[in-house]
Nucleic acid binder design. Sequence first.
DNA 1: GACCAGGCACATC
DNA 2: GATGTGCATGGT
Length: 225
Amino acid sequence: MFAVIYNRLFTYYGPQYWWPGETPFEVMIGAVLAQSTSWKNAANAVDNLKHHGLLSPQALHKIPIEDLAGLIRPSGYFNAKSLKLKSLVDWLRQTCDYKLDLLEDSSTDHIRRSLLSVYGIGPETADSILLYALERPVFVIDAYTRRIFDRIGFTPVKDKSYDDYQRLFMANLEPDPVLYNEYHALLVKHAKISCRKQPVCKNCCIADICDFYHNHTQANGDRDE
DNA sequence: GACCAGGCACATC
DNA sequence: GATGTGCATGGT
């Protein structure tokens, strides 16, 4: 069913071309700057860094944190995010001496755990970095994803933590970074277009699926397939 | 002016 | 472990 919903969304909305960063490092920076803000604001902050020649870990390491904060103002939370960017750059220096290629030999789980120890990197940002910058098969869960699948009635059996949702998706989809990339982007698109404030999807490309699961499985509790 | 946007850390109970 | 709060800009 997860694949069916993906195919519906892709047919209806088409490819989304997410994370058009020029380098993996730019994508990593964007993942932090996009936290809890619009992508447009985050992109403006990335552009400021780009115009100042700061889209390299070495350059970000050198710039004073106050100056960095000033440049990323458009993304909001600029004092907190400047510290987060500094922490991420420190992590890159310590783990791979700023050479992302060296991460290729590490397992996805190892990198994920390591990223989660970095200040300012939570599960969604870590997974965005793994998927969109490092092209690892990790499904990114966000508020939109939860909203859509909660409404369908397709939710984890036990708890509803980030990891529970992620396990649900990854247990039902092939581990394909291209698929995960597009799927997450399509869910965000769908949430913005068709699945905003209504309690249940109506007149959208997966309305029949929402109705079906509300009518047939909700009464039996949550399902995992 | 209220609300939201591609979260997270920290304090408190 | 769950819940509340601070962080802040820019668009609707």
